[in-house]
Design a protein around this nucleic acid. Sequence first.
DNA 1: TCGATAGTTCGATATTTTTCGAATTTTGGC
DNA 2: GCCAAAATTCGAAAAATATCGAACTATCGA
Lengths: 101, 101
Amino acid sequence: MRHARLPASEEIAIVDVFHALSDPFRLQIVRRLAVEGEASCQALEGDRPKSSVSHHFRVLREAGLIRTRNEGATRMNALRREDIERRFPGLLSCVLSARND
Amino acid sequence: MRHARLPASEEIAIVDVFHALSDPFRLQIVRRLAVEGEASCQALEGDRPKSSVSHHFRVLREAGLIRTRNEGATRMNALRREDIERRFPGLLSCVLSARND
DNA sequence: TCGATAGTTCGATATTTTTCGAATTTTGGC
DNA sequence: GCCAAAATTCGAAAAATATCGAACTATCGA
């Protein structure tokens, strides 16, 4: 399985992060990962076709927001909390505490 | 001159804010407004046609990030600092302090 | 090895944004 | 009233994103 590129902490670009977070579905994924720690893709899909879910996870991954590791046949996704915090202090807590959007 | 709608503080949607900030030119406008306080559109345009500049100011305005007031024939734009801070505490300082993107 | 499950990739289409010139609006000054 | 300056609106064309099914890949277990 080819590995998607994932930027190092210092390489994370804020415009990419903002773009990734500007989609409601992706924002929801980020928030659920924040609560659940790790989750598979399918655990977070909502009737969407797999290809669409996969696309959104890829956007999050390439923006530097999540990390994906293989666990058997499934892939577990997690927020890159420390990396994001180091790169953009305060951003994540701000995103997570912003309610009723 | 028709007035562009501008959301009340509580109506500002975080996905709209993120979308507005996901463009390098718009992010630059926000940062310059943070430094300069107020500025006309043309003061911030960089060789771009006026219609393009106007478009980006409109996106920022409709997202709730800036406010525009008439000053004679020119329009002065300013960040809605307090409104943004009330709605999404910490976001603005995070955006403004994020460097070398 | 065969199947089943989980995701990714591909390709085509649809939707959304961006871009830019031209026309228009608004305001102040002459 | 007219002209110039500042910005918005319109319309069309280009570029970027999103969507979805189908084909493909990888891993585990029977």
